[in-house]
Structures are given as structure tokens and as C-alpha cells.
Design a protein around this nucleic acid. Structure first.
Lengths: 118, 118
DNA sequence: TCAAGAACTAGAATTGTTCTATTTTGAGGT
DNA sequence: ACCTCAAAATAGAACAATTCTAGTTCTTGA
């Protein structure tokens, strides 16, 4: 529960940050307890795990609405974006090679406003 | 050059596999030489590096045609798919939050024909 | 031929995550 | 209340991919 709350409170946080958040509300929690909880929660579909290139895994509780992510190449800032194409469209690849596709993960890479200034 | 050839010969291979490929054509190459070469090549845009969740980095030389990937959740098999939406459309997120977007990375997750049978 | 910079090597170091063995906790039954 | 058993937590080791570092070897231009 504490882990779930921490994920809710810090969207797109790393396991480490979430562990800190959980500790803030409960006291002591081991790293592994957090990993276990995160693992179970994302397995059950209650939270989502994203693993952008060049960073550790991030977790969020916004789930089931087919939204995507926009990540800054310089500072790593991550924001949600709604699916450009509506509903859950991306699930149709042009040619599926016989695969049964169950998810389309979209990551937009770019530069955030702050980093553009600098 | 040997590294580039190895990437060409084994699309979607890991750094390790590419190192083996390079060694097969040249003799001995250190792991770091390979990482250096891969780093420079992808920095210059000659090859592309993809880092799917739960696997190490993969490299490919098909570049600049806005294609995406379809990965099997069970066996990790990776195939190319052309962009569902044509040209380079995905570059437009519904709302860009002020970011300067330069790439849209799409990964379709599913089950390959072989794993569906099993 | 020589010097200077680039690339290469080997091996240690780092980081995020997972594994394993041991301990603690909590629920149900007596 | 007490005991037992399973589930969850702990601590710390283990692991794998990648990066860093220091020293050596090549290559190229003068």
C-alpha cells in the first residue's frame, strides 16, 4: 500500500525514489520489499513500468488509458502525452508478422522547454 | 568497419554478439573497442541503438526510414515493422508540452508465431 | 624518423536489479 | 492465549551490461 501510494505521489519515479517515498510514510522498508511490491503491482496491471533507454525503470499508476511518454534527452524529464491517434489505434502495426500484439509502447524523444533555453 | 559489418550482418544483435561477429572477421577485438565503435556510429547516425525493456541494447543499420519494432515477450525475437501511419507522422504528439520532439520510438509488444504455438 | 594524438587493451568500478538464505510477521486452528 | 505454517521482509551477496581509467600501441603529418 505504501509503495502504491508512493507511486501515485511521484509519477515517473525510479524504484529508489519510490522506496524513499514509502519509507517516509511507513518507516523502514527494504529495497527488495519495494522491488517485490513494484513487480507484483505491475504484473497485476495496477501500475505500469516503463524503461526508457539510458535510465532505470520508472513507475506510474496511470494505467489502461493508452497514453504515452515524452522524455527530454538532456535532463530526463518525463511527461505524459495522450495517444496522438485516439482510442487504442497504435495496436495495429502495418504488418504484424504473425505476432499477437498486446501493447504499443510509444516514447517521444526531444528537449524540454528548460533545456532548450540553456 | 568490422563492427559496422557485423551490425549489418546481424540486425538486432547485442553488443556481445556484434563483438563475436567482428572477431570472426578480424581476429581479436576488445569489448571496449566494440562499445566505442558502436557508440560513435550511433552518435553519427550511421547505426541505431534500441534498448527494449528487459534486454540489453540492440543495434541495427537500417536507419532513417522511420521504422519501428515488434518484440516477442517470451523469446525476445525482434522484427522490423514499417510505420503504421506513413511518412514520419508519429513525430506529432497530440500535445508536445513545449518539447522539441526529434524522434518517436515505437515498440510493439506481443507474442511471436513460434511462442504462440507453445 | 619522430612526435602527438587517436584508438585499443585489460581490468577494475558502477549501477540497477535479482537471487538466496534467514528471520519476522500474521492468520487460523486448537 | 498458544502453536504452526505459509507468506512477506530483510540483509547482503551475486549478476550483467556498460562505463571508466590507466597504460600501451598505432597512425599520420611534419
Amino acid at each position: 500500500m505504501a509503495v502504491l501510494e508512493a507511486v501515485s505521489a511521484h509519477p515517473h519515479a525510479t524504484a529508489d525514489t519510490i522506496a524513499e517515498g514509502a519509507r517516509a510514510s511507513i518507516g523502514t522498508v527494504s529495497k527488495q520489499a519495494v522491488y517485490n511490491a513494484l513487480g507484483t503491482l505491475s504484473e497485476k496491471g495496477i501500475i505500469r513500468r516503463i524503461q526508457p533507454a539510458g535510465s532505470s525503470a520508472l513507475y506510474e499508476d496511470r494505467v489502461g488509458d493508452n497514453h504515452h511518454h515524452l522524455i527530454c534527452r538532456s535532463c530526463g524529464k518525463t511527461v505524459d502525452v495522450d495517444c496522438a491517434v485516439g482510442g487504442s489505434p497504435c495496436l495495429t502495426a502495418s504488418h504484424d508478422s504473425g505476432f499477437a500484439i498486446d501493447e504499443a509502447e510509444v516514447i517521444y524523444w526531444g528537449k524540454c522547454p528548460d533545456c532548450r533555453k540553456a
